[in-house]
Nucleic acid binder design. Structure first.
Lengths: 216, 216
DNA sequence: GGATTGAAATCTACGCTGTAGGTTTCCCTG
DNA sequence: CAGGGAAACCTACAGCGTAGATTTCAATCC
């Protein structure tokens, strides 16, 4: 029974297709992803998929949407400081990326406009405004934070087993001297250090800009 | 004369192929890039390319290599402060990205191990160590800086004409209040602000880590 | 100088892809 | 029970990456 009879329902819908697509990319990678393989996994004719999702590009959109939707909806709000909120958001995002390392390039490349993503951003921005940070700084903060998150996670998840290009101390003495300190590449500890740096930068900008209308 | 006769040289070599490939991606985008189209541009049989570059993946490597090599080799050294070096490197990188927006995703996705890239990194790291920054901070700095650069440039270059997803003030009040401040999305001014934030964060980390063995 | 060799280029062919268009079957409503 | 729409399948096509065999040229060696 590898193929169904013609008119019978296969129970396909956007959600089921998206879930199978995510699983397929997780398993085989983006290069090997295709409509036909996905149809095989679903036990369905390739063309059936097109009745629910109108092309490969739309399929990729569905994949990133499904993966983003996995992020926990973000607990609490009110009394948390903006740094707390930022840190939690960043870690949520990181966990999601590590759950689907082969999907992540899709997210980092495409602009995110899904409600889940926007809601997370809104929470972050609101917390920063509540914390009294100047609007100029708050407006720039998401660009800094998610710029860093996307770039860093891409770098950490991207490389296969050949992540370290084996730098020659003769050619690059300064970098070679630091390699022992980069042993925890990809770890949470490293992530936390880099995140500290980024958040410190935002804090610094806030101080420099005079902390504006809300310090009282 | 769309096709050459069989044994005659077409003057192909890795550099010429890479240049044509970059031009093709610049013109038609990554999706439309392919061996056959590239061969057409070169006035050559598709298979001829394989005598110089051994597959499509290697072709993509050649493309990113060629584009990275365009970066100016970085002027001066010695007396410049690390912030100056970092800022210049960042702007060089940004200019390159804007010259080849459709190639850039290739760079951000793949780990860079070309000599030009490593040399730029070495200059930056050396400048920071000369400036007395603690090794721990210096070791993390490239991850922060290039993480941000890759992520930010990907976001800025990625979106087509629909960059702003038109946020509804009812759903996302805080973000809506900030949209006027994000009008210069993609500009050098915005880039400089975000870069300030990132570099400020590194400066901050240095201060926090006690500035270590080199302040005396 | 004629034969030999190796590199560069082309030709052919195969399996795979995305998807347009047409066909079949089922279920729901009248 | 007739009709219509939706869901699924089948066929077909143009294009892709590339393995393998073939042709041609230019330089080398006896």
């Amino acid at each position: 029974m590898t193929r169904r009879t013609r008119g019978t329902s296969a129970g396909l819908d956007r959600a089921r297709i998206a879930a199978a697509a995510v699983a397929l990319v997780d398993r085989d990678g983006l290069d090997r992803f295709g409509v036909r393989r996905l149809a095989d996994d679903l036990g369905v004719d390739p063309m059936s998929i097109y009745h629910h999702i109108k092309g490969k590009a739309a399929l990729l959109d569905a994949i990133s949407e499904a993966v983003i939707a996995e992020m926990e909806a973000g607990g609490r709000g009110a009394s948390d400081g903006w740094e707390e909120v930022a840190r939690r958001t960043a870690h949520d995002y990181r966990r999601m990326a590590y759950r689907h390392p082969r999907v992540f390039p899709l997210l980092a490349t495409r602009p995110q406009k899904s409600p889940v993503a926007l809601a997370a951003l809104e929470r972050l921005v609101a917390a920063m405004r509540d914390g009294g940070l100047p609007d100029r700084v708050v407006a720039d903060a998401p660009g800094v934070l998610f710029g860093f998150l996307n770039g860093h996670l891409l770098a950490v998840l991207g490389g296969g087993p050949d992540e370290a290009p084996a730098i020659d101390p003769a050619d690059y003495p300064a970098m070679a001297a630091l390699t022992p300190l980069q042993a925890d590449f990809g770890s949470v500890a490293e992530f936390d250090r880099l995140l500290d740096s980024v958040l410190g930068g935002i804090r610094d900008q806030a101080a420099r800009h005079g902390r504006a209308h809300a310090a009282d």
